[in-house]
Amino acid sequence: MSIVTVTNLKKTYGDFSAVDGINFSIEQGEIFGFLGPNGAGKTSTINMMIGLSRPTQGEIIIDGIDARRQIKKAQAIMGIVPDESNLYNEMDGFENLCFCASLYGMRKEEREPKARQLLEQFQLKEAGKRPFKAYSKGMRRKLTIAAAIIHSPRILFLDEPTTGIDVESARQIRELILKLKEQGTTVFITTHYIEDAERICDRLAFIVGGKIVANGTVNELMESASHGHAIRLVTDINSENLAADLQARFTSSTVEITRDHALVLRSAERIPLLPVMEYFDHNGIAVYEARELRRCLGR
């Protein structure tokens, strides 16, 4: 059963479309990944779902609640980990957790033991007494997650939870997300790391330039499930330099450069999109556009 359904969601800033008519649904109890490069529209989408920003158009249903009409009711079952922490710098870890719990109506007898337990679980027991501003990046992210789950939300939203922190903290966070899933929490996670998506997500939507260009299970996207035979790509570096390298890497395709300096990969067989994106990601190349030429992608 879907716990989240998003239909034709749009967000424009002036005449720029940050999110351009996307559709997806999240099943109860799964980890749903939103994968895309910087500026793809991930944060814009999440902010509309959690009620920090108003959709320009479209519908968001969360657990049967129309999130555009009754956002406060929907927020009661949500846990939110924003891309930048929004905890209080002056308060210590324990106080921050208790304050967040109180915002969800948890009483003192309930929230204090839970806060202690979370600090222990996240290996922040000592840090619990220090002010938040003294935390390292990894610790900040972990405490932000602890604050988001203290009220046992049914659906957890995480915006790039593994970006910009040390490898060990990132690993702990992935493990924690898997554990939450075991306990029945539904998870919506955005990331620009393909590895993250592969490791923990059940299903993925690939978003570029505000559009979902592909979606499906991780396996479907890794193998050549339903992609067309030509992909058009626009990146932030010179196509001429990139073409030879790309050709060497994807030998079953031919790489062309169009007149408007886009790259086109053509193949007699279907081209799996994910390895191509992985290649760009590893080389630190930003992709502005990824589009199938023959057929429309991603339903």
Binding site: L52, K72, K73, Q75, E84, N86, N89, L103
Partner: peptide, 11 residues
């Protein structure tokens, strides 16, 4: 400092 967002996100 963005902590206000937390208040806006609370039910």
């Amino acid at each position: 400092g963005r902590s206000f967002d937390r208040l806006l996100l609370a039910p």
